[in-house]
Protein backbone atom coordinates (compact mmCIF):
# COMPACT_ATOMS: atom_id res chain seq x y z
CA UNK A 1 0.00 0.00 0.00
CA UNK A 2 1.18 3.54 -0.65
CA UNK A 3 1.51 6.10 2.14
CA UNK A 4 -1.58 7.95 0.95
CA UNK A 5 -3.66 4.76 1.01
CA UNK A 6 -2.33 3.87 4.47
CA UNK A 7 -3.28 7.29 5.84
CA UNK A 8 -6.89 6.85 4.82
CA UNK A 9 -7.22 3.19 5.74
CA UNK A 10 -10.02 2.18 8.15
CA UNK A 11 -8.30 0.94 11.31
CA UNK A 12 -10.29 -1.42 13.56
CA UNK A 13 -7.74 -1.65 16.33
CA UNK A 14 -4.89 0.62 17.34
CA UNK A 15 -2.20 -0.73 19.63
CA UNK A 16 -0.02 1.83 21.34
CA UNK A 17 3.20 -0.01 22.18
CA UNK A 18 5.36 3.08 22.46
CA UNK A 19 5.90 2.46 26.15
CA UNK A 20 7.78 -0.75 25.60
CA UNK A 21 10.91 -1.95 23.80
CA UNK A 22 11.61 -5.24 22.00
CA UNK A 23 9.95 -7.73 22.35
CA UNK A 24 7.16 -5.73 24.03
CA UNK A 25 5.43 -4.46 20.85
CA UNK A 26 5.31 -8.01 19.48
CA UNK A 27 3.64 -9.24 22.66
CA UNK A 28 1.13 -6.35 22.52
CA UNK A 29 0.39 -7.14 18.87
CA UNK A 30 -0.15 -10.80 19.65
CA UNK A 31 -2.60 -9.95 22.44
CA UNK A 32 -4.50 -7.46 20.27
CA UNK A 33 -4.78 -9.57 17.13
CA UNK A 34 -6.97 -12.02 19.02
CA UNK A 35 -9.57 -9.30 19.62
CA UNK A 36 -10.20 -8.43 15.96
CA UNK A 37 -11.92 -10.27 13.12
CA UNK A 38 -10.49 -11.69 9.92
CA UNK A 39 -10.00 -8.94 7.35
CA UNK A 40 -9.81 -6.22 10.00
CA UNK A 41 -6.91 -3.80 9.94
CA UNK A 42 -4.72 -3.15 12.97
CA UNK A 43 -2.10 -0.49 13.50
CA UNK A 44 0.79 -0.84 15.93
CA UNK A 45 2.48 2.29 17.24
CA UNK A 46 6.06 1.70 18.26
CA UNK A 47 9.03 3.86 19.11
CA UNK A 48 11.32 0.87 18.76
CA UNK A 49 13.24 0.81 15.48
CA UNK A 50 13.52 -3.00 15.53
CA UNK A 51 9.76 -3.43 15.61
CA UNK A 52 9.51 -1.93 12.13
CA UNK A 53 11.45 -4.94 10.83
CA UNK A 54 10.04 -7.48 13.29
CA UNK A 55 6.32 -6.95 12.64
CA UNK A 56 6.50 -7.85 8.90
CA UNK A 57 8.35 -11.06 9.89
CA UNK A 58 5.73 -11.77 12.52
CA UNK A 59 3.01 -11.23 9.89
CA UNK A 60 4.62 -13.67 7.46
CA UNK A 61 4.83 -16.30 10.16
CA UNK A 62 1.23 -15.79 11.34
CA UNK A 63 -0.20 -15.50 7.83
CA UNK A 64 -1.39 -11.93 8.39
CA UNK A 65 -0.87 -9.36 5.65
CA UNK A 66 1.65 -6.61 6.31
CA UNK A 67 0.40 -3.40 4.68
CA UNK A 68 3.16 -0.88 5.35
CA UNK A 69 4.72 1.56 7.78
CA UNK A 70 4.35 5.29 8.21
CA UNK A 71 7.16 7.15 9.96
CA UNK A 72 6.00 9.85 12.36
CA UNK A 73 8.33 12.00 14.40
CA UNK A 74 9.86 9.69 16.99
CA UNK A 75 7.69 6.65 16.30
CA UNK A 76 6.31 4.33 13.63
CA UNK A 77 2.81 3.34 12.62
CA UNK A 78 2.80 -0.21 11.34
CA UNK A 79 -0.29 -1.50 9.52
CA UNK A 80 -1.44 -5.08 9.03
CA UNK A 81 -4.53 -6.98 8.01
CA UNK A 82 -5.64 -10.08 9.91
CA UNK A 83 -5.92 -13.23 7.79
Amino acid sequence: MTHEELKTVQVTKSVDARGTACPGPLLEAKKAIGTIKSGDIMEVLSADEGTKVDIPKWCTKQGNEYLGTIEESGFFKIYLKKK
Binding site: C22, P23, L26, D54, K61
Partner: peptide, 8 residues
Protein backbone atom coordinates in the same frame (compact mmCIF):
# COMPACT_ATOMS: atom_id res chain seq x y z
CA UNK B 1 11.71 -16.95 24.08
CA UNK B 2 9.10 -14.21 24.30
CA UNK B 3 9.57 -13.23 20.66
CA UNK B 4 9.15 -16.88 19.66
CA UNK B 5 6.07 -17.29 21.83
CA UNK B 6 4.57 -14.13 20.32
CA UNK B 7 4.98 -15.85 16.95
CA UNK B 8 3.07 -18.89 18.30
Amino acid sequence: SLAAAAMD
